[in-house]
């Protein structure tokens, strides 16, 4: 088992004929993912990395039974691409595209929800279950199969941390990159509830950053419902208020969303909080040891 993706995941790549689409199709294949179709309007009949390209998502789904989509199309067209995927019956869409206006994302999120589909992202690295499937762009080199779940709002910081877990001799069950935008399809609470149900995940690493209150809500969920050990890290302790730190969501505005508030909430909920990213693997190993001793 794993979370949201597994060996039966059949991936459609929207925007497969673009540079990023092509590069990451190859990388997903090397990971062992079944990439079954691509979709780019007007490019139907082409082949990219051995994958057939269709003019529409509906045709791609009919021909290949794709059941997950990864979206690389540019921001002005991302909403359209997502709606097309949802209308074609795709239950899981990973939106890698960055700079999607949040007004568009609001519509995308609520439309997907009404239709029973889940969005991961936007502006996210996607999801990967080592040995099974990867839907997104996380570098293959960081992974090793194991029992640690990872959920993060960051991209490259996730790579750094997941890689550290591997170098420590541990492995991951599933890694979910939620994305750094103000509105995301899947948040910490959503991801934690999935990990709670996953028998192959023993410990969860939660990587947050300043801005918004998603970490605090995650902490509330941990306190009330989550039974597995959590190791947490929050980026942005040194960020000055009012400065946007790269991610559209990473800003301390009106005193809300500070690292201090998030760290206090997570600690209060029983999570082990790492002061430095390189402390995370050690803390994870300790939690796993405690489970073994129990």
């Amino acid at each position: 088992m794993s979370v949201l993706v597994d060996a039966d995941t059949r991936v459609l790549v929207q925007g497969i004929t673009g540079h990023q689409g092509t590069v990451h199709t190859r990388q997903m294949q090397l990971f062992g993912t079944k990439v079954v179709a691509g979709a780019t309007p007007g490019k139907g009949g082409a082949t990219v990395e051995g994958v057939p390209v269709f003019d529409s998502v509906e045709r791609a789904v009919r021909a290949t039974s794709a059941n997950a989509s990864v979206i690389f199309v540019p921001a002005p067209f991302a909403k359209d691409a997502l709606v097309e995927a949802v209308d074609a019956g795709i239950p899981l869409a990973v939106v890698v595209t960055e700079h999607i206006p949040f007004h568009d994302m609001l519509s995308m999120y609520h439309y997907a929800r009404l239709r029973g589909a889940r969005i991961i992202g936007p502006n996210c690295p996607g999801i990967a279950a080592p040995g099974k499937a990867k839907v997104g762009i996380i570098p293959n080199v960081v992974f090793h199969p194991g029992r640690v779940g990872v959920v993060s709002r960051s991209g490259t910081l996730t790579y750094e941390i997941v890689s550290g877990i591997k170098e420590h001799g541990l492995g991951q069950s599933t890694c979910i990159g939620l994305g750094g935008d103000p509105v995301v399809g899947t948040n910490f609470v959503d991801a934690l509830s999935l990990f709670e149900e996953d028998p192959d995940t023993d410990v969860v690493v939660m990587v947050g950053e300043i801005g918004g209150t998603a970490e605090e809500e995650g902490a509330d969920y941990i306190r009330a419902h989550f039974t597995k050990p959590v190791v947490a890290y929050v980026a942005g302790r040194s960020a000055p208020p009012g400065k946007r730190m790269g991610h559209a969501g990473a800003i301390i505005a009106r005193g809300r969303g500070t690292a201090a508030s998030k760290l206090a909430a997570l600690e209060g909920a029983g999570a082990k909080v790492a002061s430095f990213p390189y402390e995370i693997p050690g803390l994870v190993a300790e939690r796993l040891q405690e489970l073994t001793n129990r």
């Binding site: 991209g155 910081l157 950053e209 980026a235 302790r237 960020a239 730190m245 991610h247 990473a250």
Partner: peptide, 17 residues
């Protein structure tokens, strides 16, 4: 000089700490 908002922020934090 880093890449990605999260890694950049974490790098600044570790420097300051």
């Amino acid at each position: 000089i880093a890449n990605g908002a999260g890694l950049t922020m974490a790098t600044l934090d570790v420097l300051q700490q």
